[in-house]
Amino acid sequence: MIRDSQDVIVKTLSRLLVPFMVIYALYVIMHGHHSPGGGFQGGVILAAGFVLLVVSHGLEQTRKRLSEKAAGVLSSIGVFIYAGIGALCLILGGNYLDYGKLSKLLPVVPAEARSLGILGVEIGVALAVMAVMFTIFLVIFTVGEFQEDDRSEK
């Protein structure tokens, strides 16, 4: 169903738009702990950038940048960052996700360690959400196409 669009207007516009979407998503993630937004919204905007790339440049071009396997690995890495920061605080003697205890590792005061800890958690959430949203999109839009490809190869 997804094929390479031949429209030069769509291709040029999306090529110009995708970097701005990614920059905006990174802005939303990085400012998530003291302004509206955060990991979930930033991850969704990142995934929307990839969706625009699939719609305009086709599936093969997008697979070169982020394959399904890489998306699966990225979602696991995101969950690992989240759970790892939580467990690190547990090991350092606090509660789960008690970021103040991270000041024993980082050379900062506990208040700033809290800010950095929530930033790390936001980055993990953004990675996981981006990869999972992209995977759901690919699974819905390519259902029934892989079997046809296999049949043509045989």
Partner: peptide
């Protein structure tokens, strides 16, 4: 509002 715009109006519509 941010979540509604990013999740429901963009990704949800596409899906």
């Amino acid at each position: 509002a941010f979540t509604e715009a990013s999740v429901s109006a963009s990704i949800g519509t596409v899906l």
